[in-house]
Computed example of a mutant assay.
Amino acid sequence: MATSLLLLRRASSLFSSSPSPLSSSSSPLPRLARRIPLRSMAAAAAEPFQKIQIQREDTTFDAYVVGKENAPGIVVLQEWWGVDFEIKNHALHISQLDQGYRALIPDLYRGKVGLDAAEAQHLMEGLDWQGAVKDISASVNWLKANGSSKVGVTGYCMGGALSIASAVLVPEVDAVVAFYGVPSPQLADPSQAKAPIQAHFGELDNFVGFSDVTAAKSLEEKLKLSGVPYEVHIYPGCAHAFMNVSPEGIKRRKELGMTDGDLSAVELAWSRFRSWMGRFLF
């Protein structure tokens, strides 16, 4: 675990320059599981995702789409792991919220997935961040060209930072919900955001400068200057990646030293997500 924590701290440094225990007797997991369709790694391939290819400039990348056609679209951005079971869990859940959304996951790593923290860090360090923003722009435009009159962007950890960057750099974005991630000043200045932003952070997150409380409060100050609608929420007792509640996700978080767990916070965050996207996309 010490090695994993060291890798995460190194990842936090990279980000900033360019992520209450569960009790079997009292946990509300069975109730939450009925609301959120949790899928394991083995089941991920069987989910109803359509694999498509999106063209941008002189390159093509894969993306995965799920949900109602002609519904508002939401681009769902991966953590540093890549397009794995957890990001598909989130996209599937989003597609089934309220009246229904069309969720699209662009494959920013071009088919590669990190199976441990060292691989994930290596993939993230090799990411072309400006190119990733172009992938997001192409994904938003694909949804708008294929029946979604309005399109939002959401993301987690690395994807959270990129989702905020998209509010600054992609004019076609209609709303953003970011989870525990802030872009580096070199990538995007949140004070220049052009789309409404809602952001979620854990009080115990120790990714200094990227997703800790100080980063969250700094983001809030910058969003005040932007003039766009915004909300910044900090969840007491929650660490990084607190939205990951599948069995594998919980196991992976514990292996990385994140032993917190508050499913009421997860439910509250999803409730706020629903309100925000519903407000700006319908």
Rank of each mutant, 00 (worst) to 15 (best):
K150D: 08
G159W: 09
V151L: 03
K134S: 15
D135R: 06
C157Q: 12
T154A: 02
S166D: 00
N146P: 01
A165M: 10
K134N: 13
C157A: 11
A145M: 08
G152W: 13
I136Q: 05
G152Q: 10
Y156T: 14
G159E: 03
Y156H: 15
S139Y: 14
N141D: 15
L162K: 09
S139N: 06
L162F: 07
T154L: 07
K144H: 13
T154K: 01
G155A: 11
D135W: 08
S149K: 15
C157K: 12
Y156W: 15
A161T: 06
K150W: 00
Y156D: 14
S137I: 06
A161M: 03
A145I: 00
A145F: 11
Y156S: 14
N146A: 05
S137D: 08
K144N: 03
W142T: 04
K144V: 03
V140R: 13
V151E: 10
S166E: 04
G152K: 08
K134V: 15
N146V: 04
G160I: 13
M158T: 14
G155M: 05
V151F: 02
A138K: 02
C157D: 07
K134P: 05
D135P: 11
A145C: 07
L143F: 03
M158S: 11
M158W: 12
N146K: 05
N141P: 14
V153T: 13
S137M: 04
S137L: 04
V153W: 02
D135S: 10
S148G: 08
Y156A: 11
K144A: 12
S139D: 00
S163H: 10
A161C: 08
V151D: 08
S139K: 01
V153Q: 12
S148V: 09
S166H: 07
V140P: 11
S137E: 15
W142H: 14
I164K: 02
G147E: 03
G152D: 03
Y156K: 12
S148I: 02
K144G: 09
A165G: 03
G152A: 00
G159I: 05
Y156Q: 14
K144M: 01
G159T: 10
M158G: 10
L143G: 01
K134H: 13
S139R: 09
Y156P: 09
G160H: 05
N141F: 14
G152Y: 00
L143N: 00
M158C: 12
V151A: 04
V140C: 13
T154Y: 02
A138Y: 05
D135L: 02
A138F: 11
D135M: 07
K144T: 07
L162N: 11
S148K: 06
T154F: 02
I136C: 04
N146R: 07
A165S: 12
N141W: 11
V140G: 12
K144L: 12
V151H: 00
I136M: 04
A138R: 13
G155T: 07
S137C: 01
G160R: 11
A161N: 04
G152N: 08
T154Q: 06
N146C: 00
N141S: 15
A161W: 01
V151T: 12
G159Q: 07
S166P: 10
I136S: 02
A161K: 13
G160A: 14
I136R: 13
L143R: 03
L143Q: 00
